[in-house]
């Protein structure tokens, strides 16, 4: 676990030797067994690996939805271990945007109000919330779907609403756990293109977990996981992706 970073603030988020152990009925599941990685501001990263390798667990930790059993998690250089519930909530609400495989939109709520939801918890007034939500929806190409409810939208559109929601708080980092997993190829491509465009145009760091080799091949950096460990990290070299068992980094 050698640390080679020069300036911690260059990382949007950084995990240092994190472990995550689930205890159930006395048995222990070691979902993460010492993972270190840093995501730079504006970076575009894919994470892949077999089912059960700990990808979602890692994403939850990076997204401050969960705390590591041991190890440190730094958001913008600040250790999240020192944060209480309210502090973690603030990180989730303002530093990070989460995109889920199953969209997770409120069914009875319009696209615009779904997108505005994170702003409610930042004390933003209703009019401004709606304006910013509208802007975010425009950015994902859904300006014409403001008052549609999730059931009135296609899967791809729903996921783009979710992306708009992840973006509306202007986070450093968008974490997308299998965002195309529930979509057909065409819709999946559209969602991916949206994420890539936002990464390019707005400089938001994007981390995508995917099982799809085609999707995994697109970002400049690919991280491979197996059995709770990072087994390859393409950030270290352009062609290291695929060389399982190489040195674990950050």
């Amino acid at each position: 676990m050698t640390e080679t970073r020069q300036d911690p603030t260059t990382y949007a988020i950084e995990a240092v030797d994190v472990h995550r152990v689930y205890r159930m009925d006395g048995a222990e599941v070691r979902a993460l067994r010492g993972v270190s990685l840093g995501i730079r501001e504006g970076e575009y990263v894919a994470i892949t690996g077999p089912s059960g390798s700990g990808k979602s667990t890692l994403m939850h930790l990076l997204g401050a939805l969960d705390r590591p059993s041991s190890g440190r998690l730094l958001v913008g250089g600040r250790d999240t271990a020192k944060l209480d519930d309210a502090g973690l909530a603030r990180v989730r609400g303002s530093e990070i945007g989460f995109v889920f495989q199953s969209f997770q939109l409120l069914a009875r709520t319009t696209a615009r109000d779904n997108v505005a939801l994170p702003l409610v918890y930042r004390g933003v007034g209703r009019a401004e919330r709606r304006a910013r939500a509208q802007e975010a929806l425009e950015a994902v190409g859904l300006a014409h779907r403001l008052t549609h409810r999730p059931t009135q939208l296609s899967g791809g559109e729903q996921q783009r609403v979710a992306i708009a929601r992840a973006l509306v708080g202007r986070p450093r980092l968008v974490l997308a756990d299998e965002p195309t997993g529930n979509l057909d190829t065409a819709n999946g491509r559209e969602v991916l293109a949206t994420l890539e465009r936002l990464n390019r145009e707005r400089g938001v760091a994007v981390v995508i977990v995917t099982h799809d080799a085609e999707v995994a091949a697109r970002p400049p950096r690919l991280i491979r996981m197996r059995d709770g460990l990072i087994v390859a990290d393409g950030a270290d070299g352009p062609d290291i992706a695929g060389s399982a068992g190489s040195a674990v980094s950050r």
């Binding site: 939805l65 909530a89 609400g93 997770q104 994170p118 918890y121 930042r122 929601r165």
Partner: peptide, 8 residues
Amino acid sequence: LRKALGAR
């Protein structure tokens, strides 16, 4: 979901 989006 609300908690994931920043609800304390």
